[in-house]
Computed example of a mutant assay.
Amino acid sequence: MRPELGDFSSIVCFKALVTGAEEALGEKAAMITLIAAGRNRGKQIAKQLGLSENETSLEGIVPLLQKALGKDGTRLCIVDKIEQAGETITVYCRETICSAGEPEGSPRKLTFTLGAIQGVLEHVTSKRLRGKQTESVLRGGSHDVIEFEVIG
C-alpha cells in the first residue's frame, strides 16, 4: 500500500484513535462504532481467506485466523482456540491490540478485535451473533475470551 512505510501502523496510533473516538463520541458510542468497524473488517478477512458460508469446523479456521491476524498477518491478535457449545461460540485470544499497553486492572474492553472476530464468525456461520468479553488479560485472565451467542 505504502511504498516506504508498508502496510502497518503502530499500536500507539491505534490507541490514540480509540481514545479520541471515546472523547469525541462518548464511551458507549465509540464502542459501538469500533465493534461495527471490526465486524466489517472481519467479513472482509473471511472473504479474503476464502472461507465459505456454513463452514463446518470452527476449530478448522483457527490456523487460518492465526496466519491472517497473528504475527505473519495483520498482528491484530493471536487466536488460540475456538469452541462451540450449543449456540455459544467461545474464542480465546491473546496479545490483542485492544489490550496492548493497558495497565493491569484496566477496565478496557475489546472492541475492534471483538468485532473483527465476530465478522469472521458471522460470515462462516451465516448467523447474526452478539459478542461479549468474559475474561481479560488485564484483569487476571490467561486470555481475552469472547463469547458469541446466536441472535438471528
Rank of each mutant, 00 (worst) to 15 (best):
R139K: 12
E4H: 12
G50Y: 01
S52D: 09
E104Y: 01
Q133D: 05
L129D: 05
S99G: 07
I97N: 01
G119N: 13
G101H: 00
T74I: 14
D144N: 08
A46G: 07
L5N: 10
I89T: 08
C93L: 07
T113P: 00
C93M: 09
C93H: 01
I32Y: 10
R75K: 13
G115R: 04
G38R: 00
A100F: 11
L25N: 03
D144R: 00
I32C: 12
L65F: 06
I45C: 13
I146D: 00
I117N: 04
S106L: 14
E135N: 04
E23K: 14
T90W: 04
I146M: 03
I82V: 11
R130F: 08
A36G: 02
K67S: 11
E147L: 05
S10I: 03
S126M: 02
C77D: 04
T113L: 06
S99F: 04
Q66C: 14
F148V: 07
G50E: 01
T56G: 12
L34E: 07
G20N: 05
Y92L: 00
G152T: 02
P3M: 14
D7F: 13
S106A: 14
L34A: 11
L25I: 06
I35W: 02
Q66R: 15
S10N: 09
T96E: 05
T90S: 10
F14L: 15
A116L: 10
C77F: 03
K71N: 14
I117H: 03
A29K: 13
E23R: 13
E4P: 02
E55N: 06
R41T: 11
T90N: 04
L76P: 12
T111H: 03
E102S: 08
I151Y: 05
V91M: 08
A116V: 01
P63R: 00
G115D: 04
T125R: 05
L110I: 07
P103G: 09
I78S: 15
G115P: 00
P3N: 14
Q44E: 12
K109A: 03
S52Q: 07
L76N: 09
E95L: 10
E147Q: 13
S142K: 13
L25V: 02
S10D: 10
K15L: 13
F8Y: 12
D80C: 08
K67A: 06
L49I: 05
L17T: 03
K81A: 13
H123I: 04
I35S: 12
L121G: 01
S99M: 13
T19N: 08
R39A: 10
L114E: 09
L110G: 13
R128G: 05
L110K: 02
G73W: 00
G70C: 09
I45F: 14
R130K: 15
A68M: 11
G140W: 06
M31I: 02
S52R: 05
G6I: 02
R128H: 11
T96I: 05
I97R: 01
L49A: 09
E4S: 14
F112T: 02
E102Y: 11
E53L: 09
V137L: 02
A37M: 13
V137I: 06
K81T: 07
I146S: 00
E102M: 15
G101I: 01
S106M: 10
I89V: 08
